[in-house]
Computed example of a mutant assay.
Amino acid sequence: MQFDQAGAQALMEITSRPELVFVRGQGSWLEDHQGKRYLDFMQGWAVNCLGHCPQPVVEAITRQASTLLNPSPAFYNQPSMDLARRLTQASCFDRVFFANSGAEANEGAIKLARKWGQLKRGGAYKIITFEHSFHGRTLATMSASGKPGWDTIFAPQVDGFPKAKLNDLDSVRALIDDQTVAIMLEPVQGESGVIPVTAEFMRELRELTHANNMLLIVDEVQTGVGRTGAMFAYQHFGVEPDIMTLAKGIGGGVPLAALCAREEVSVFKHGDQGGTYNGNPLMAAAGLAVFDTIAAPGFLDSVNARAEQLSKGLIRLSDKHGMEGERGLGMLRALKLGRDIGPALVKAAINRAPEGLLLNAPRPNLLRFMPALNVSADEIELMLSWLDELIAQAD
């Protein structure tokens, strides 16, 4: 099969892509248009939490597609109600609004916090976020993000998102004024290099928001639904946020996101929030299959076992090659390379023969690992052995 150059030219140019087309996937493996296989430790940036084409999701979508696709969000449908109930029963939240992407869920969280500020805090609207954070690509979520350079791409930004330093409570306190309504953060900053929040800092933020009658919002787009070894990352810290956003893994590969909130914060009036495809039964059915798989007895125990294996393996590589260690939480981890060889390693990995390896370097000096949560022990060891060879060649 030849590469379709005309088809590639028809797509809008928004990123640099290699001239290969993935045509099928199963579990931790992808296959391109020429039959080459790749061990995938990106999984669509933590989207495919059960790997490629997981049987429970495929069966759920097939079943639902033959009965009902989208009756409109103006009506109830059973899969969305079932999934909302699963999420509330497994968390500290009472209400769920389904969306299609993490950016959309975070946009909803911002709107909900501001609406709560109008009703409960005399119009307070500012949301403190953090340097190097990533909350999405809408205008508001880009403004909320602390990604360097994003303040000028589509200027002017949306007002009201002062930036603090992660794990530095004094920097947060310094930004609070009478217009501050919430603090919003990722339990692990993924795009900035897999930087976890400390348990002490998360607890201090909860105390700070309580003391100042503000909301605590956790963006769990990347960390939620089993990625960190708990169903939700906030559960590691012994706190209960007011709002949580989910996406990526909750759909297991399909466009699904969720905005979750406690009852007293769920202040939207009819017409304040909506969306043509939101909570449609096809996507909700996929989400149900994902949730029930991850919630099954023993699944998260296996995730934690594999996470420990991956962490120890990355530490061995770091020690062997004189690097700077690893960090992360659960199955969201980074290898600190100590030098700017990340992009070169990503390119060498995908070009590896006879089988390739898919890696991600969100920063030039580190690699990020987001494998399927059900990746096997043998697949982790295979990745580590291939990466060992690639690093040796880069040196």
Rank of each mutant, 00 (worst) to 15 (best):
T141F: 08
D4R: 05
G330I: 05
M1V: 14
V239L: 13
L259C: 06
G193V: 07
N374Q: 02
Q189G: 04
T129E: 00
E19H: 14
H33V: 05
A155S: 13
A394I: 05
V221M: 03
Q273V: 15
A289K: 00
D159I: 11
H52M: 10
Q235V: 06
G7Y: 13
S16C: 07
R316F: 02
D378C: 04
D319F: 01
I294F: 05
L69P: 06
C53E: 13
N213K: 14
Q273Y: 15
K336F: 09
D94C: 07
N48F: 14
T67K: 00
A286R: 03
Q5G: 00
V158G: 02
L335T: 00
S133I: 10
G271I: 08
Q26S: 12
F291C: 04
A140L: 07
H52V: 01
A372Y: 05
L259H: 13
Q2E: 15
A109V: 12
K147F: 14
Q393A: 12
I217K: 00
R316S: 09
Q26N: 07
N374P: 01
Q34N: 11
C49T: 14
I128G: 09
K312A: 09
F97V: 13
F134Q: 07
E240T: 07
V267D: 11
V181N: 09
G122N: 15
I217A: 04
P297N: 03
E191I: 01
T62L: 01
A182M: 08
A109P: 15
N280T: 06
T138H: 12
V197R: 08
N213L: 01
Q189L: 11
A361G: 03
S171R: 14
G190D: 02
H132V: 05
L69K: 11
P354S: 01
F75E: 15
I127W: 10
I350A: 02
H210S: 09
G149C: 06
A372F: 01
G193D: 07
A99R: 13
D151E: 15
T152L: 12
G51M: 03
N48Y: 14
L359W: 00
P281E: 12
D292Y: 02
E379W: 05
Q2Y: 00
A10S: 14
G35F: 03
Q26Y: 13
V47T: 12
D177K: 00
G274L: 02
G123L: 10
L300K: 12
L314K: 05
A344Y: 00
Q157I: 10
W45H: 11
G338D: 04
L282P: 02
K269I: 04
A60T: 10
T223E: 04
L139Q: 15
V218D: 01
S311V: 13
C92E: 00
T88H: 02
S302L: 00
G251A: 09
M231I: 14
L288K: 07
Q309A: 05
E207Q: 12
M244R: 02
T141D: 07
W45N: 11
L216T: 08
I183A: 05
G356H: 09
A394H: 07
G122E: 11
E104S: 14
G123W: 15
G251C: 06
Q393R: 06
Q55D: 11
W116Y: 09
